[in-house]
Amino acid sequence: MTEPLNPGSHAVEVELAIDQITIVSLAEATVTVRCMLGPVRCGARFDRIHDSAEAIDLELTKILAYHRSVDELDPVHTALVTLRGTGVQLLTSATPRSRWQSIRGTNPLP
């Protein structure tokens, strides 16, 4: 007999659109983002860039919304976030001629 899935036990997909990025080091960036799919929580892990084959492994370690540290960011809201891990150098800021780059991943399990 198969046990029913626990809705709270699976990873929830999330997406952030990048407006501006400041590279702090090879493994850390401070990024102005808009939440496109979420809410996105601290500890979320991002493993892909939309429309790119490049691999990333970034963890969201801090969210500042309206100059306050918060634990999650709801869709359509913007914030300053800190991302740490592999692939920081692949992230790009938006320009008047380019679309915002989007990164996708999953929230941590509760």
Rank of each mutant, 00 (worst) to 15 (best):
C35P: 05
G85F: 04
P108C: 07
H67V: 08
R104V: 06
S25M: 07
T86M: 11
T2N: 04
D74K: 12
H77I: 06
A27F: 13
I49D: 03
G85M: 03
T106A: 10
H10M: 05
L37P: 05
V33E: 05
S102D: 06
I49Q: 05
V31W: 00
D47S: 11
D51A: 10
T92H: 11
I103S: 01
T95Y: 04
R84K: 15
V81L: 03
R99D: 14
L83T: 00
G8S: 11
H50N: 09
D57F: 02
R99G: 10
G87S: 08
L5W: 04
P75G: 09
T95V: 07
V70Y: 04
G8C: 01
A44D: 04
S98L: 08
L37A: 11
T30V: 14
T95D: 09
R97M: 11
P96Q: 05
E3V: 10
E15W: 01
T92E: 14
W100N: 12
I63M: 01
G105C: 06
Q101C: 08
C42E: 15
L26V: 09
M36S: 10
E28L: 10
R34D: 09
A53G: 06
Y66L: 13
R68W: 04
Q20K: 11
L37E: 11
V33P: 02
R99E: 12
R97E: 13
A11P: 00
L16M: 04
F46N: 00
N6T: 05
G87M: 04
W100Y: 11
P7C: 02
L60N: 01
I18M: 01
T22W: 03
E54L: 10
T32Q: 15
W100I: 01
C35G: 06
V33I: 13
S93G: 10
L83Y: 00
S98P: 01
T2P: 03
V70G: 03
E59N: 05
L37Q: 15
E15T: 14
G8N: 09
L64Y: 09
N107G: 12
D74S: 13
L83G: 02
T86G: 02
T61M: 03
A79M: 07
T95R: 13
A27I: 11
L90E: 12
V24K: 15
R99P: 01
R41V: 08
M1R: 06
Q20M: 14
L91D: 04
G8Y: 11
E3R: 08
G85S: 09
A65T: 07
L60E: 02
I21V: 14
T78H: 06
Q20I: 11
I23Y: 07
V76Y: 12
T22V: 11
A55G: 03
A17Y: 00
G87I: 03
V81W: 00
T92L: 12
L90W: 07
R48L: 03
S93C: 11
A17S: 15
L5E: 04
Q20V: 12
P108Y: 03
D74W: 13
I21C: 11
D74F: 10
L73A: 06
S69V: 14
D74Y: 15
P39D: 13
V24A: 14
T22N: 15
E15R: 13
R97G: 09
A29N: 02
D57E: 08
E13A: 13
E54Q: 14
S93A: 12
Q101H: 06
D51T: 07
T78Y: 08
A79R: 00
A17F: 02
V76P: 01
S25L: 09
I103L: 08
L26A: 14
P75C: 09
S52M: 12
L73I: 13
V31H: 05
